[in-house]
Write a protein that binds this DNA or RNA. Sequence first.
DNA 1: TTTGTTAGTCTAGTGGATAAACAAAGTTTT
DNA 2: AAAACTTTGTTTATCCACTAGACTAACAAA
Lengths: 400, 400
Amino acid sequence: MNMKENRTWNHHVVKEGNKSLVMEMIKNESPISRAAVASQTGLNKGTVSSLVADLMDDHLIYESGPGVSSGGRRPVMLLFNGSAGHSIGIDLGVNYLLGILTDLEGNIIEKKELNFKNHSYEEIEKKLFEVIDLLTSIAPPSPHGIIGIGVGVPGIVDTNGSILLAPNLNWKNVNLKTVIETKYRLPVIIENEANAGAYGEKQFGVGQESENIIYVSAGIGIGVGLILNGSLYKGANGFSGELGHMTIQVDGPVCRCGNQGCWELYASEQALIAKAAQLNLPVPAKQELELTTLISLAENGNQEIITLFEEVGDLLGVGINNIINTFNPQQVIIGNRLASSNRWLEESLNKRVSKQALWFQQNDLQISFSELSTLSAALGVSAFSIENFISVRMQPKSFV
Amino acid sequence: MNMKENRTWNHHVVKEGNKSLVMEMIKNESPISRAAVASQTGLNKGTVSSLVADLMDDHLIYESGPGVSSGGRRPVMLLFNGSAGHSIGIDLGVNYLLGILTDLEGNIIEKKELNFKNHSYEEIEKKLFEVIDLLTSIAPPSPHGIIGIGVGVPGIVDTNGSILLAPNLNWKNVNLKTVIETKYRLPVIIENEANAGAYGEKQFGVGQESENIIYVSAGIGIGVGLILNGSLYKGANGFSGELGHMTIQVDGPVCRCGNQGCWELYASEQALIAKAAQLNLPVPAKQELELTTLISLAENGNQEIITLFEEVGDLLGVGINNIINTFNPQQVIIGNRLASSNRWLEESLNKRVSKQALWFQQNDLQISFSELSTLSAALGVSAFSIENFISVRMQPKSFV
DNA sequence: TTTGTTAGTCTAGTGGATAAACAAAGTTTT
DNA sequence: AAAACTTTGTTTATCCACTAGACTAACAAA
């Protein structure tokens, strides 16, 4: 909520804001007493008591036993009720589908993964429904049930949640949001995979402490999710973060996007495989060259391949330098499939950055590889639903 | 104001928010009646009346005569009182100092410009004080007097307003904010010149309709100011927008920043002059090669120079493509000294963008050259002070 | 005139925050 | 063990800003 919105300010807004404040405090600092919430937020004790009662009515929090006294009456500790509902998050990849069921704290209750190749939209939709049905049926009973479904997709999603373009899936103008909403009658969020990953890292991963995070999703291509001032930046139409197509070599080779010298031609899985294809590798003739193949070769100490990884790490660094100069972030997180090769990428990447990024940008700057690995996007979309669910619950009842 | 801030919500906040809303409405839609403000904001008529009374007490608005009736009682029209106070904005360049005195609507009352070369900090400080003294003495009497002083500088400014580094001025760690505040006892804002320019364009220039604006300040070097979701994005420490040092050619020449192939080596005034120096130009031997020289040559139809400008326009386009892919902005504005050469830059720039930027990014995208020309930075810092002044005035009296 | 419409003020009522008193349940001191 | 002190959490009275709607003012059209 922002003062520049043309929304009027009244008692409802005040209550909504304070309820959020209390909720946030309990979620982050739990277990915590009413008195501590009051003193830390600056709210009056009575106000906190009343808001806490509301939240308990709504099953979003609960009282655990008494805590330890600090010289007076023992406090009643409050905890966030992560099991008040569950959320479904789906990472729809180019050749896989990963679905998770999480509680409201992002704990994964169930995980279901499928692989496929060159499927039509209809086939993928069918698989998607199957996974959603499965996860729904597994969800433990809870006061709010399934609170929403989120899907991360490898493509361009506009601000209405419509998939404008997913080149690697061969999709155009697919309104998946409406399809799922109609079938399941639940709030649905469709989001670009990089944006989802960024949010996942911010909520549950290595980015929890930072307000300005750039998440580099390095897979077949490169997509980037931007967390600026604590919230996701999507641009005027939702198309921000297409940094895979940032020029890093003006006279470089032509990309399928029409541009020349795009970053992802140099520093993605695609780039790695293209380079490897030109080597004379000890790979069974008919086997397709894949990232996993290269990784196992590198693990076996194949120096040629290791050098290849290092080159890619260096060129990842070039783009990350540009990102640093652009955003002055606290944190850059490299995620998606290439993140698993961090041990060969990290050194050359860091060397490039420390050598060439502007010195003042390097203070307080953290460059990390994702630890959620392949789960960040699914966790991210799940988190969007959770965030949305909770924010609706903060409104006074007459509004809901 | 943001819900995530740990500020509690109470009556004061509500009033502050609604007062802002009413103020904004009157500023933007003036002349406007109380009734119209009420219906457009959704606030109750009584509330509007009371807030308007507050604003009038504070001289921020005033009643003009009655407006035209629409079939009933004639409305009393309200107007923003631009003359309630004045603001000083200074654009401190590498070899010039431009000071303006504006009213609260950004109308320029007085303008004072000085040129110098290779001055020491002390000399510049002296000139700065002279200009401030002059502008202060000229300011017409008003209820609030001079409401603040803003200075735009060609360098890195941290979030405290301290100038960390201004390479072309040869400054390091200069706390100009404290210096001016101590001398004048007024609110002082120090801001990077590109950020200031961006804000100037947003408030008074071609960017007034957009919420996501990227302002490219192309002078000796290139700096970029980012307006995202309606407000200036400064990054974790205030160092965002250093896009002049974005790599656009991995194996390009080494920049003084240590990096290779920086954008500003290809598409700035510096680049233009360096290229021109290699030509055999009809310029008096001892005369230094400057942008103005090149412009007059181009004006006289020197084809070599015109081609040079076109090349620079093309390379500006390369970086702007990267910007578009990164931010998905509604508007990209090219400002500062190179903006005045738009007639030779524009065509090649637009050609590069329309040919190579992703197609979906090009809908609703506007690329413009600044019309405020050299004034945008000074107007921008002036606007920062005004914004700040007004936002303080929105708070209930006990808070001020 | 009369009737209807719009502008702006005034009054009563409402929701939610605050301050301060109070009750409950401890610990510490004597 | 009694008394005194601390801390937690609830309750009550008060305050503040918004809303609804009555009311007054000022105009146009019939």
